[in-house]
Computed example of a mutant assay.
Amino acid sequence: MDAHELYRRWIDELWNGRLDVVGELVDEGFVGHWPDRDVHGPQELAGLIGETHGMLDVLTFVIEVGPLVDGDLVAGRWRGRGAQDGNPVTFVGNDLLRVAGGRFTEYWPASLPLP
């Protein structure tokens, strides 16, 4: 699978709640670098995504820009939408991922809530 398709599946499938595909998209040695912690491996990532979906009602993500591919790096911009206590929530984020062997191996996310 090429990096463009890998990123499409990363957002359209995995981040939209299809946790069963995590092993197809993420290497066993995966490390995600969130500001408050590192996440290691597919199962820990699936747990974090599950926690994220548990914080909001009907959470969905769409790709807005990209993916842009340069060597082993993939970048993209996405928008998330959901609701919390009946109030709509929208936020955007930028991803930077490293790919090797057809799977993501490293991840640096950045997201911001929108007013």
Rank of each mutant, 00 (worst) to 15 (best):
H40E: 13
E24N: 05
T90F: 04
T52H: 13
R79N: 06
L25A: 02
R9Y: 05
E5F: 08
F61H: 14
G23L: 09
L14K: 10
A100P: 07
D36M: 06
G41E: 01
G93D: 04
E51I: 03
D27A: 14
V62S: 07
V92I: 13
G54P: 10
V74W: 00
V31S: 01
A110F: 11
V89Q: 11
G76E: 01
L45P: 09
G102D: 00
L112S: 15
W15P: 10
E28Q: 13
G102L: 08
R103M: 01
S111N: 12
D70V: 14
G82K: 01
I49C: 05
D85Y: 10
M1S: 12
L59G: 04
W78S: 07
D36E: 15
I63D: 00
V65P: 08
P109Q: 03
D72K: 14
A3H: 07
E28C: 12
P67M: 01
A83C: 09
G71Q: 02
M1I: 14
F104D: 04
N87H: 13
P113L: 11
V21W: 08
D38W: 10
I11C: 00
G82S: 00
I49V: 15
L48T: 15
V65M: 11
D12T: 09
D95C: 05
N87E: 15
I63S: 00
T105M: 02
V22W: 06
E64T: 15
G23P: 10
Y107F: 12
V65D: 13
G54R: 07
V26S: 05
T105G: 06
P42E: 05
D2N: 10
F30D: 04
W15S: 09
R81P: 00
G29Q: 11
A110V: 14
R103H: 06
D36I: 02
G93P: 06
V74I: 15
E44R: 13
D72G: 15
V62C: 03
D72W: 09
D20P: 04
G93E: 01
E24R: 15
Y107Q: 12
L112M: 12
L45G: 08
P109I: 07
H53L: 03
T60H: 06
G80N: 08
W78I: 10
P115C: 06
D2S: 05
L96I: 15
L68Y: 03
V62P: 01
V31A: 02
S111F: 10
P35V: 01
D95S: 11
W108K: 07
G80C: 06
Q84N: 13
L68T: 15
W10N: 03
G102C: 08
G32W: 02
M55W: 03
T60W: 00
P115E: 05
P35L: 01
G66L: 00
V39H: 00
N16M: 06
T90A: 08
M1C: 09
G66D: 14
V74C: 02
V92C: 12
V69E: 03
G71V: 07
R9C: 05
W34K: 15
D72Q: 14
G29L: 03
M1E: 07
R8E: 07
F91C: 12
V21I: 11
F91D: 08
G32E: 03
